[in-house]
Amino acid sequence: MTAKLLGLVLAGGRSTRMQRDKAALQYRPGQTQLAAAVDMLRPHVAQVFVSVRPDQRDDATRRGYEQIVDQIESAGPIAGILAAQSAHPDAAWWVLACDLPFLDEATLADLAARRDAARDATAYRSSHDGLPEPLCAIFEPRTRAALAAYVGTGRLCPRKFLLQADTLLLDPPNARALDNANTSDDYWQAMAKLNPQQFVDQREICVQYFALLREQAGCREEKLVTSAPTPRVLYEELRKRHPFSLAADTLRIAINGEFADWSRPLQAGDTVVFIPPVAGG
């Protein structure tokens, strides 16, 4: 008999590389990534839970959801899966990461339709490396003892667990749907792809030049209309018009008078400064 299917959205990460809480990021105004993942998964399962660390239970992004709290520390996503299986041992768990900005309904519907409850797990094959994608996958209840034993020997990689288990591996209907966004660069690139109208339109910005770049540009300031989505692309565009000798990786960026990321989207009216290597004192 096919076990009842519950949903587990993983939101217990530390977002170290993003330097901001990934669950709280928004790709659409007013909707956190966590809320988007919960809403997408809900129609496919009997109930959705959110996997959290003990210290995250009361934070604003997570407190409105039914939670499964990690019982072991610093074990990554596998701790969430273990805790869920321990709370509802007879259920199958659809595990879903909250940091998949390109996840679409077709991908979820396909996994739901092709689930094979007679296997240990049903998962997609990564379009990057062919290995199982553990963070949008269904773990049947029969994996519970094996997963606990696996973690008991100090192994924490859910992908390797699925590799050695009896996992049904499917090709995803959309190769990019499971690409995750781990860094600020990833976030802004995903934003630009998901909201092209907001970021790709031509807009007027101002560029100010100092020191060597001022001499090579032949001016202190210029206004220009550009479709460059970020300072990184803008600098490459400007290099076609000015004989800039400095490589981008020797420069820093300021936008509107404050240090900024190379991947920060440019908006109409921004003033951008490319900061050459400094030499004060």
């Binding site: 100092f210 020191a211 060597l212 000798s245 400095l246 820093r252 300021a254 400064v273 900061i275 050459p276 290597p277 400094v278 030499a279 004060g280 004192g281």
Partner: peptide, 18 residues
Amino acid sequence: PIWKKEHYANGDSGWVNC
């Protein structure tokens, strides 16, 4: 963000560190 341009006795000049 401060830059220093040196002028040399031989007539050359250059932005330090650039």
